[in-house]
């Protein structure tokens, strides 16, 4: 068969011809819209801003959401306060060169863990015990920890994670979301109650609205 001249060409062209008359697979976006899964919100990609710094804020939300726990990260938290990390130390970039050493079995100094101060954990242990070490009470545990220490020390968050078994990423996500929780000790001279953070925003909204409307501020709300 193979010595019939031109047979390869005919075979090739016949495929081309067949494809030519088949319906097209291309979707003419944006005129036509494909059905996407209802949870689709766009593709995930790490981007850089105009100054060339990574836009990722190390907020851990992707690591927390990832169902197969494949996302690991380490870095400085949003406000440059302390190093945080999530996932086994071997797997994140800046420490990769260490992991060979680590696997050799010799003790490795862990610089990441030295970036936050240790705290006296006695009070925290009492709080955890009162809540039966139950991560379901996380918000109450965090609120009471803040009441005991004045803020939420990273060492305390790590300890809560270790004792309750809740992911550090989840706890960190909770602690950074609520405006009445704070991860820094309050400056001594401006020690307003932590709940003021949100209440101040709300009062600001009310007075901005009054100002925009020309109403006298302090009208009954």
């Amino acid at each position: 068969m193979s010595f019939i001249p031109g047979i390869g060409l005919v075979r090739g062209m016949s495929l081309t011809l067949r494809r030519f008359f088949q319906p097209k697979a291309t979707i003419r976006w944006p005129e036509e819209k494909a059905d996407v899964a209802p949870k689709f919100r766009g593709r995930l990609q790490l981007l850089y801003d105009e100054y060339g710094t990574l836009k990722c804020e190390t907020c851990f939300q992707c690591a927390q959401a990832c169902p197969i726990e494949c996302i690991d990260m380490g870095g400085i938290d949003t406000k440059g306060r302390f190093h945080v990390h999530w996932g086994p130390p071997e797997t994140y970039g800046e420490r990769r060169e260490e992991s060979a050493l680590r696997r050799s079995g010799r003790p490795v100094a862990d610089p990441m863990y030295e970036h936050y101060e240790s705290v006296d954990l006695v009070a925290l242990d009492g709080i955890l015990e009162a809540h039966d070490f139950d991560p379901k009470d996380m918000l109450a545990i965090l609120e009471e920890t803040q009441a005991a220490y004045g803020y939420l020390p990273v060492a305390a968050l790590k300890h809560i994670s270790r004792i309750t078994g809740a992911w550090y990423a989840t706890i960190y996500g909770t602690a950074t979301y609520y405006r009445h929780l704070r991860l820094e000790p309050p400056a001594a001279d401006t020690a307003a109650p932590a709940g003021e953070a949100q209440r101040g925003i709300e009062a600001g909204y009310r007075s901005a609205l009054d100002a925009a409307l020309g109403h006298v501020s302090g009208c009954p709300s």
């Binding site: 918000l139 909770t174 979301y177 609520y178 405006r179 929780l181 949100q198």
Partner: peptide, 23 residues
């Protein structure tokens, strides 16, 4: 509960009651 505007939204409120991030 306290600490965010979004807590009024029902799924957010439930996350807060579970002690999770309010999204």
């Amino acid at each position: 509960v306290q600490g965010a505007y979004m807590l009024g939204e029902e799924t957010v409120l439930l996350r807060a009651l579970e002690g999770r991030r309010g999204q």
